[in-house]
Design a protein around this nucleic acid. Structure first.
Length: 561
RNA sequence: UGGGGCGUCGCCAAGCGGUAAGGCACUGGUCUCUGGCUCCAGCAUUCGGGGGUUCAAAUCCUCCCGCCCCAGCCA
């Protein structure tokens, strides 16, 4: 388990502290993270993972990983594996406590028989449509099913035959006998078991009846000795049912506690919407670096540390909230600033000829790998007569606050020399094709002996020595802060950011990046944090931009618009 | 119109009757061989609104307003 870098307190921890004080669970703290293996985990799950595993660690308790696999029609082994990988990657260890709700199927069945014997459950023959009608509405009470009065013997017989596969899908259900007039619709004789002749990823064709979430979840928690069953707000209405089952069954009773799920600006956070994005071809897959999935964030260059830190910072409460994406970005910048080695890369190259520099001379200059970390050391960077700088670092007719290169102006090339632009070369169409500059040999290393100052330092690469690379620039997936607001089912698609991905093919990076392998993270000086994509190869380097550096210059430009 | 929740700074979020923490964002400034980082300063006389209780209320009572969730044999 990762060292519990103690997160701030919250109402859930307060409850646990209080329970420990009163001895409610004899000081025991046991949580669980219970995903349904029907999709990939996202940053919202990370919040839950950090909460559950974090609490267990902090209170010296345990946290189980449990697959909530009670619906064979939606769940697949592929997801089980990705979930395990993601939880591990985020930084937590369930040790030997990997569980499956499907492991408890026999136990669930026995409990159901018990409920029937206690007159608390019955087999109902209502069709799905009829059941909906009998259920009533939010404002009108429901009506009791005509099958509600069946004898215990008949229910026992019918339920056993349901298990044996004597009835077709949807023909019958096992229901809890509670209260059809309850204001809480979950209490209006909820279905406990449904018939599903479907192959289960764990139990194969052993079963053709499967338990419902409300029924299976509380019993699973009880079996595992969970003390605090933490879930999201929408299950608040289900808590009475959770309690009802356990009380009727006379089983050990964990406490369900609900908290608000995470929402983030400029993205969506539901499995259903992810599927639409993937299947609609709007993103390249579940692990597209623009996706808020754990796998997407990982590929984007986010670190587990940054995500855990983010989860600690957002807090845990009951108010529906949408966290500013800027906070997530802050967390990854903070982490990478500390750890990422610096490199120079030119995304949109503009050629520069140093006219007073010898044609075949190559100089090796010392560059600092990470100013935040002296132990990262230094490296050599080749300098020659022909270089590339960033197109946006030169302006022929610079506005007031533009400090970078311009005709006649002197700037510093990082770790190299002061250069002065003496000529602008253009093609027939008037496009700038290259710049002629002169350098001052006395400024080698980047400082002028005469104390002369420049207002800007530019990053650069040697034309001859630099490596070609593809760089993928990512921006927010959506153009609006809240793409989920509004009604229409497909509305959010229209809010996609057309500029969420820009692929640059002709980038040049310094030679030190030749051995970079997938997952490696760097700061490209003055540009942002980048990581090597899994598609990258020694022949073709591919980088993903994780996040830009904060940029005061773009702010100034935007302010002047 | 039923049931369950929630409303404290642009976004999160502490606070639990004693006179509004913190973070992000933002704005200035400092520093700087990254217009990055660091550092400093500013940023709610006010807690959805109205009444009430109290020497004292974001915290207690009351009424009102607003927002979220629930009518799957999904989780």
């Amino acid at each position: 388990m990762t060292a519990p870098e103690s997160a701030p307190s919250n109402f859930i921890k307060d409850i646990i502290t209080e329970d420990n004080k009163t001895g409610k669970y004899r000081g025991r703290v046991h949580t669980r993270f219970p995903p349904e293996p029907n999709g990939y985990l996202h940053i919202g799950h990370a919040k839950s993972i950090c909460l559950n595993f974090g609490i267990a660690a902090e209170f010296k308790g345990l946290c189980n990983l449990r697959m909530d696999d009670t619906n064979p029609t939606k769940e697949e082994v592929e997801y089980v594996e990705s979930i395990k990988q993601d939880v591990r990657w985020v930084g937590f260890d369930w040790q030997e406590r990997m569980y499956y709700a499907s492991n408890y199927f026999e136990r669930f069945y026995e409990c159901a028989v018990d409920l029937i014997k206690k007159g608390r459950a019955y087999v109902c023959d209502l069709s799905p449509d009829e059941m909906r009608q009998y259920r009533g509405t939010l404002t009108e009470p429901g009506k009791e099913s005509p099958y509600r009065g069946r004898s215990v013997e008949e229910n026992l017989d019918l339920f056993e035959r349901m298990r044996k596969g004597e009835f077709p899908d949807g023909s019958r259900t096992l229901r809890a006998k509670i209260d059809m007039t309850s204001g809480n619709i979950n209490m209006r004789d909820p279905v406990i078991y449904r018939i599903l002749h479907s192959e289960h990823h764990m139990t194969g064709d052993k079963w053709c009846i499967y338990p419902m979430y409300d029924y299976a979840h509380c019993i699973s928690d009880s079996i595992e000795g969970i003390t605090h069953s933490i879930c999201t707000l929408e299950f608040e209405d289900h808590r009475p049912l959770y309690d009802w089952f356990l009380d009727e069954l006379g089983m050990y009773h964990p406490q369900q506690i609900e908290f608000a799920r995470l929402n983030l600006t400029y993205t969506v956070m539901s499995k259903r919407k992810f599927i639409q994005l993937v299947e609609g071809g709007y993103v390249r897959g579940w692990d597209d670096p623009r996706m808020p999935t754990i796998s997407g964030l990982r590929r984007r260059g986010y670190t587990p540390e940054s995500i855990r830190n983010f989860c600690d910072r957002i807090g845990v409460a009951k108010a529906a909230s949408t966290v500013d994406m800027a906070l997530l970005e802050y967390c990854i910048r903070e982490d990478l600033n500390r750890r990422a080695p610096r490199m120079m890369a030119v995304l949109r190259p503009l050629k520069i000829i140093i006219t007073n520099y010898p044609e075949d001379k190559v100089d090796e200059l010392d560059a600092i790998n990470n100013p935040e970390d002296p132990s990262a050391g230094t490296r050599k960077v080749p300098f020659s007569r022909e270089l590339y700088i960033e197109q946006e670092d030169f302006m022929e007719d610079p506005p007031k606050k533009f400090f970078r290169l311009a005709p006649g102006r002197e700037v510093r090339l990082r770790y190299a020399y002061f250069i002065k632009c003496v000529d602008v070369v253009k093609d027939g169409a008037g496009n700038i094709t290259e710049l002629h500059c002169t350098y001052d040999p006395a400024t080698r290393g980047g400082d002028a002996p005469d104390g002369r100052k420049v207002k800007a330092t530019l990053h650069w690469v040697s034309a001859e020595h630099s490596l070609a690379a593809e760089v993928r620039l990512y921006d927010y997936l959506f153009a609006q802060p809240n793409p989920e607001e509004g009604t229409g089912d497909k509305d959010f698609i229209s809010k996609l950011n057309p500029k969420s991905l820009e692929v640059l093919q002709d980038c040049r990076v310094e030679p030190g990046l030749s051995g970079a392998s997938p997952g490696n993270k760097y700061q490209f000086e003055r540009l942002g944090y980048f990581c090597v994509d899994q598609d990258s190869s020694p022949e073709k380097l591919i980088f993903n931009r994780t996040v830009t550096l904060k940029d005061t210059w773009v702010k100034i430009q935007n302010a002047n618009k």
